[in-house]
């Protein structure tokens, strides 16, 4: 037990200049591409453009997690990763739930709906 505690503080992965530079280069590319895409007008379909931009963001977040925040499944004996996965699950439920519920509320309960009801009577 004691050796686990003793080694717990010591085996942080701090990265190297090379790993920071790699992460930075990847980030620059992953930032420049979506900016360029939107600034130059994007694809013919706006939905495809939006999905591409969001895709770049997701990849870049992973790059930052790996190269800048040194997130591995071994960091803090796995507790960092567990906390992050838990947070990600909550965030996904919260975001998708909010957007889903509020979208239907907006489309089904717009003010003109009451006019339609009055006309029907």
């Amino acid at each position: 037990m004691s050796e686990i505690h003793a080694s717990g503080a010591a085996h942080h992965d701090h990265g190297t200049h090379a790993s920071y530079a790699t992460g930075f280069a990847l980030s620059v590319v992953l930032t420049a591409l979506p900016f360029g895409l939107v600034m130059l007008g994007g694809f013919a379909s706006p939905v495809v453009t939006a999905l591409t931009v969001v895709g770049f963001a997701v990849v870049q977040i992973v790059v930052h997690m790996v190269f800048f925040l040194h997130m591995t499944s071994r960091a803090e004996e796995g507790w960092s990763m567990l906390a992050m996965i838990f947070t990600a699950v909550i965030v996904v439920i919260m975001l998708s739930g909010s957007l889903w519920v509020m979208y239907h509320l907006n489309t089904n309960m717009m003010p003109q709906m009451s006019h339609d009801l009055e006309n029907m009577q």
Binding site: M1, S2, H5, A6, G8, A9, H12, E76, W79, S80, A83, M84, F86, T87, I90, V91, M94, L95, S98, L99
Partner: peptide, 30 residues
């Protein structure tokens, strides 16, 4: 009794704070 070296849990505790901050930002994004 066993010792925890001073500060050995700081990084994890701070990470948990950042995750709670992340939830706050998620609400603002929503």
């Amino acid at each position: 009794p066993h010792d925890h070296p001073e500060g050995s849990s700081t990084a994890l505790g701070f990470w948990v704070y950042l995750m709670s901050d992340c939830l706050m930002f998620a609400v603002l994004f929503a």
